[in-house]
């Protein structure tokens, strides 16, 4: 295993009285694709949303424990939540383009962070950056002639790739993907998977998926959750071929979940 970028230490999450994550301790390796698998309701999405503190946007959640990003606990009092979310990007299950043009969607993150001004000093024009990330998301060719039309006019598959470009444009170190292809047709889904594989050389990716085949195709590292508990984590090949825990074996065989 390469050096971990995110270290999760004894993480507990409650929704009201429901104990959704129970004492999770696991490392997420840098510049690899980590897949989080498990039956629905096991806490996969909760784990993901704890990594960029999006959990606190839902009323009544309580979090204890630590999530260390590069050695710094993102739940520390002094940490600015917007900074966490700048460094940890996210791709939601359903594409939600922002109510603006395609171009502005990609530029939005950089603009709110005040980056275009800095970029200009470095000779990086916003247009070039928008193009670059639309290319990275595999969308450039389809939208280059209508960058300034509303993003709501794109197909669902295109919208999801736009959301990918939008997330990448902030240049996050980590990209969280919550069932990123569940709302897509097979071809769009394949495109997204290709793009994820292409960017993992620079970006650490965490994918939540309920599809074992997708986990097979994508994952370098695997985390298996069961009813809010961590059952098993390790290099994907090892977990798939030789699971240590009986529940993992049963889940992978399709007997449970």
């Amino acid at each position: 295993m390469t050096e971990p970028l995110i270290e999760i230490r004894d993480l507990n999450v409650w929704y009201g009285t429901e104990h959704a994550l129970k004492g999770i301790t696991v490392d997420i390796p840098a510049r690899q694709i980590t897949a989080v698998i498990g039956p629905s309701g096991c806490g996969k999405t909760t784990l993901l949303r704890s990594l960029n503190r999006l959990l606190e946007e839902t009323e009544g959640t309580r979090v204890t424990g630590q999530v260390l990003l590069d050695g710094v606990n993102i739940y520390d009092r002094g940490v600015d939540v917007t900074e966490v979310r700048t460094r940890v990007g996210m791709l939601a299950p359903k594409p939600f383009p922002l109510p603006m043009s395609i171009y502005d969607n990609v530029a939005y993150g950089r603009r709110i962070h005040g980056l275009p001004v800095l970029d200009k000093g470095n000779g990086r024009h916003l247009d070039r950056i928008v193009e670059r990330y639309l290319r990275a998301a595999g969308l450039w060719e389809e939208v280059k002639d209508r960058l300034h039309s509303p993003a709501s006019g794109l197909s669902t598959g295109q919208q999801q790739r736009l959301c990918l470009a939008r997330a990448l444009a902030v240049e996050p170190e980590v990209l969280l993907c919550d069932e990123p292809t569940s709302a897509l047709d097979p071809i769009s889904a394949q495109r997204i998977e290709e793009q994820l594989r292409a960017i993992k050389t620079e970006t650490t990716i965490v994918v939540v998926t309920h599809s074992l085949r997708q986990a097979h195709r994508l994952a370098d590292y695997l985390i298996f959750l069961w009813l809010g508990e961590l059952v098993e984590a390790g290099p994907a090949r090892q977990v798939f071929q030789n699971p240590r825990d009986e529940r993992t074996r049963a889940y992978l065989a399709g007997d449970i979940g």
Binding site: L54, E57, T82, I112
Partner: peptide, 18 residues
């Protein structure tokens, strides 16, 4: 406004006001 739209903006590091 769907919660997911707000979250999409938060997830990019936007503040509440933004």
């Amino acid at each position: 406004v769907p919660a997911a739209l707000k979250e999409a903006s938060y997830a990019l590091g936007a503040t509440r006001f933004e």
